[in-house]
Write a protein that binds this DNA or RNA. Structure first.
Lengths: 109, 109
DNA sequence: CGTGTAAGGAATTCTGACACG
DNA sequence: CGTGTAAGGAATTCTGACACG
């Protein structure tokens, strides 16, 4: 649900194209997966498939690595951002719930 | 320019994934290219790369083919639609030009 | 015309490992 | 820790062609 299933999140890109798009080596791309920074899917036969979102994250990772940031630290950054995103979503949901309650909530029998 | 360079139009999908996505055979996908219904790009080594736009067009083609429409007729349909799109763009440009002229066009010296 | 298939070769991708630092 | 590389195998993709209808 949400804005998923959009082009940006569909896992359709092979590692060779990701290599072209990011300038990273296959070794690096696989290693960042091993460190849980990205999560490609697999074809039936086992080839990795990435989304545009993954490609963009990889570019960010490459930038951080150039600045000497370790994969562990990058991982923490990603977690932090994800948590903030979830928090915002919760707030939004709460506000929506509140509005719905105000209008339809306390209906007399 | 335009809405190009968006995810939808980037040629990054291999023929194997396109096969999965469309349910067509590689033979069919290559044949529709031969008939000029789609225009994949190539990697340096010669593998075809498709966009999400291509995938959607292929699904349309598959639907038409099921209804017995020939590739020639499909080609004409595509041309017609493209021409209409261009015409609309021309109209939009003309309108814009007109507006700009009305405001800034006939400036005295 | 539209599609299947077998053929042979070239390029891709995968995993586990050794290397260096 | 992060990345390169050689190794061997499996899967992918390509082209040109023959087949059928």
């Amino acid at each position: 649900m949400n804005s998923d299933s959009s082009y940006k999140n569909r896992k359709v890109i092979s590692i060779g194209v990701v290599k072209e798009l990011t300038g990273l080596s296959e070794r690096q791309i696989r290693y960042y997966e091993e460190r849980n920074l990205i999560f490609p899917e697999r074809t039936e036969k086992g080839s990795r498939k990435y989304s545009f979102f993954d490609v963009e994250r990889l570019v960010e990772i490459a930038n951080q690595r150039e600045e000497g940031v370790s994969t562990d630290e990058i991982r923490r950054d990603i977690n932090k951002r994800d948590k903030e995103k979830l928090k915002k979503e919760d707030i939004r949901k709460d506000m929506l719930k509140g509005q719905l309650n105000a209008r339809f909530g306390i209906q007399k029998k």
